[in-house]
């Protein structure tokens, strides 16, 4: 599918929450690849499993959530080289690793970094920004404390903090929302990650600041040739930043493809309906917006078959409610899980 080797390859990932009331299949068979230098946007509404997917990649799924199936291959650059966990040359499967073990800890934060949604909640209010950055650098890179501090200042400068020398001594609550998010990005970048995961990094901030942050992430990505997984529910943001898009609904991937195809030639009925239902500043105002009927089902009563079928305009009786479609390539770019495009494939 991709010419270059992916840095991260998620294969048929299933993360379930085993509750007393039943099992919530938060992520139910998700597969996608991330290529270096590419921004992969995962888009979906609440409950679609986008956050649980990346928490699975970072192995920070909370109890009682568990990865029950699937592989997460990550191109590891560890100093030790290969390991004995059955992975090939430089690919390691993160799933069998101990979530709190040394191996996983050397990946998390260093090679895969996270920008969380709420920078206010992610920073400690009782430590200075500098201390928190230095902690991350000392943990993952064998440098002296003085040099770590130096690097912290450099990183803050790189993300456009106006006076980084002062910022290192500030507490997170002293900074404005935009600066705080910049400091968070500096922290995520502090160990030169090869994969950056941004979980709704602009949802909590204003539009003008959002535009600044998006532009910053784009330029940093080009400078460092990082791969980015960008999670959001905002289709506008996805259109602006992503190269490749994964559309999710209720724990499953509905459609994947290059950003241009997703927005200009969507194939899955859900993607089509979603794009039509957003009011756009561009489009001529029409009186009533086309809508997707109904609402997102509760995870406990997930519909049978294709989970979108009760809201789908293309619903085919006895097909969509019986079997679950699996993603199938429909051309050399897009892949769709819908029986409109492939009758044969599907799970009972």
């Amino acid at each position: 599918m991709n010419r270059t080797t992916p840095i991260l390859s998620v294969r048929n990932l299933k993360t379930y929450f085993l509750l007393d009331e039943g099992t919530v299949r938060a992520v139910d068979g998700v597969s996608f690849d991330v290529v270096p230098g590419q921004v992969v946007g995962i888009v979906g509404e609440s409950g679609c499993g986008k956050s649980v997917t990346i928490k699975s990649v970072l192995r920070i799924v909370e109890e009682p959530g568990r990865i029950v199936e699937g592989e997460i291959y990550f191109r590891h650059q560890g100093q030790n080289g290969r390991d004995g966990s059955g992975a090939n040359e430089d690919f390691v499967d993160l799933v069998p690793l101990d979530a709190h073990g040394k191996r996983m800890r050397s990946v998390r934060g260093a090679e895969i970094a996270l920008i969380p949604q709420e920078p206010m909640a992610a920073f400690s209010p009782v430590h200075t920004i500098g201390d928190q950055l230095v902690e991350a650098i000392l943990l993952h890179q064998g440098v002296s404390a003085g040099e770590a501090r130096q690097r912290a200042v450099e990183r803050l400068h790189e993300v456009g903090v106006p006076s980084p020398e002062e910022c290192v001594n500030a507490y997170s609550w002293e900074l404005s929302g935009g600066l705080r998010q910049r400091a968070m990005i500096a922290m995520a970048l502090s160990c030169n990650p090869r994969l950056l995961i941004a979980d709704e990094p602009t949802t909590a901030i204003d539009v003008t600041t959002q535009a600044q942050i998006l532009r910053l992430l784009r330029s940093l990505q080009q400078q460092h040739n990082m791969a980015i997984i960008f999670i959001t529910h905002d289709l506008g943001v996805i259109a602006q930043i992503a190269d490749y898009v994964v559309v999710m609904y209720l724990g499953r991937v509905m459609e994947t493809g290059p950003v241009d195809d997703i927005f200009h030639d969507p194939q899955h009925p859900y993607t089509k309906a979603l794009l039509k239902s957003i009011p756009s500043v561009q489009s001529e105002s029409q009186k009533f917006l086309p809508t997707i009927e109904g609402s997102i089902p509760h995870p406990f009563n997930r519909p049978s078959g294709c989970s979108f079928h009760p809201r789908c305009v293309e619903f085919m009786p006895d097909v969509c409610n019986r079997r679950t479609p699996i993603p199938q390539p429909i051309n050399d770019r897009q892949s769709v899980s819908c029986f409109l495009y492939h009758d044969a494939a599907g799970e009972d």
Binding site: A211, L214, G236, V259, D260, L275, S280, V281, Q282
Partner: peptide
Amino acid sequence: SVPVADPR
């Protein structure tokens, strides 16, 4: 500043 829902 509004992100336009069009990658073009």
